[in-house]
Amino acid sequence: MKRVLITGAAGFLGSHLCDRFISEGYHVIGMDNFITGDKKNLLHLEDHPNFEFIEHDVTEFVKVEGRLDYILHFASPASPIDYLKIPIQTLKVGSLGTHNLLGLAKAKKARILIASTSEVYGDPLVHPQTEDYYGNVNTIGPRGVYDEAKRFQESITMAYHRFHGLETRIVRIFNTYGPRMRLNDGRVIPAFMGQALRGEDLTIFGDGLQTRSFCYVDDQVEGIYRLLLSDYVYPVNIGNPHEITIKAFAEEIIKLTDTKQKIVYKPLPEGDPLQRQPDIGLAKKILDWQPKVDRVEGMKTTFDYFKGLSEEELYKSEHKDFTNHIKL
């Protein structure tokens, strides 16, 4: 039985990856420090014979007993609320955390897949975004802590590949959604759905003409799984190329939830990208991958998940105090 370490295992994507690898017959070791992850995302695996969990901060030395075949590094704040609230930790997990896990992969002779992001493209001047586009990133803006953490992560990963011959893979993840997202984490889908469930007006930042492309979590996980097992070492976009404006998407949510809310507009946050659409030609070519889940179907499944949350979860604020978790 092959053994895989998944960091950020209690997060949205990390927990779905745990499920996928267990279903494929792997022994999964999950790792998380619960800064942004949620224990409930892993409760269904608590007694599974092929799952074990280590509570640990990957910015500190990472030790795992026994053989490792694969490492998937998904430990990182991923929403604006998180990385603007804990900017130092965000930079550390992308730099120190990645360094620690690359060192572990080298010691274990394991293949490692690094979770990068479409944010490495910044506010793009090329549309749609291809993997050979270098990006338009403000290094000193408030979002720079996340963008640059991920860009450094890619650089050190390729350095380990070139200098040490380490088997590495890099996935650039575009907007992904589905069950287990945190309802009020600042990203557009849970934000809109949370407002609809609470009977609040839907808030659009800016004029609503900025675009996003939303990929359902099952499609995202399939792309990541195929990339890990491929022979391709350079970054690959995994996302849904169907682009939609935020205004049109808000109208879709109002229709889906059968609510009567209005759309209200607020100023656009500094550095918020105006366009986001992946070119997935490379993923189609080398992975034979493209998304299959229609947005209407995926949004209905996601909304049904949010409707099942408790009232306490529905009204919980994500602006929590991270102070006890942070080592500056």
Results as ranks from 00 to 15, higher is better:
residue 6 I to Q: 00
residue 12 F to T: 09
residue 17 L to Y: 06
residue 19 D to N: 14
residue 20 R to S: 15
residue 21 F to G: 03
residue 25 G to F: 12
residue 29 I to D: 04
residue 37 G to T: 05
residue 37 G to A: 06
residue 38 D to P: 11
residue 41 N to G: 06
residue 46 E to I: 11
residue 47 D to R: 05
residue 48 H to D: 14
residue 55 E to H: 00
residue 55 E to Y: 01
residue 63 K to M: 11
residue 64 V to N: 10
residue 65 E to Y: 05
residue 65 E to L: 02
residue 81 I to L: 12
residue 87 P to L: 03
residue 91 L to E: 12
residue 93 V to K: 04
residue 101 L to P: 00
residue 102 L to K: 04
residue 105 A to K: 03
residue 105 A to L: 07
residue 113 L to P: 00
residue 120 V to N: 10
residue 121 Y to K: 05
residue 124 P to H: 04
residue 133 Y to N: 07
residue 135 G to E: 09
residue 145 V to F: 04
residue 150 K to H: 09
residue 154 E to H: 08
residue 156 I to H: 09
residue 157 T to P: 01
residue 168 T to M: 01
residue 169 R to V: 05
residue 175 N to G: 08
residue 177 Y to F: 15
residue 179 P to R: 07
residue 186 G to W: 00
residue 193 M to F: 00
residue 197 L to G: 04
residue 198 R to F: 00
residue 199 G to W: 00
residue 200 E to D: 08
residue 205 F to V: 13
residue 218 D to G: 09
residue 221 V to A: 12
residue 221 V to I: 15
residue 222 E to K: 12
residue 225 Y to T: 13
residue 227 L to G: 02
residue 229 L to W: 02
residue 236 V to K: 08
residue 246 I to S: 02
residue 248 A to Q: 15
residue 251 E to S: 12
residue 256 L to R: 08
residue 258 D to Q: 14
residue 259 T to W: 14
residue 261 Q to E: 12
residue 266 K to E: 10
residue 271 G to V: 10
residue 273 P to T: 05
residue 275 Q to R: 13
residue 276 R to V: 15
residue 284 K to G: 14
residue 287 L to Q: 05
residue 287 L to W: 03
residue 287 L to A: 01
residue 287 L to N: 01
residue 292 K to A: 01
residue 297 E to L: 08
residue 297 E to Y: 05
residue 298 G to Y: 09
residue 298 G to F: 04
residue 301 T to D: 15
residue 304 D to R: 14
residue 305 Y to G: 01
residue 306 F to D: 04
residue 308 G to S: 15
residue 309 L to E: 08
residue 328 L to H: 02
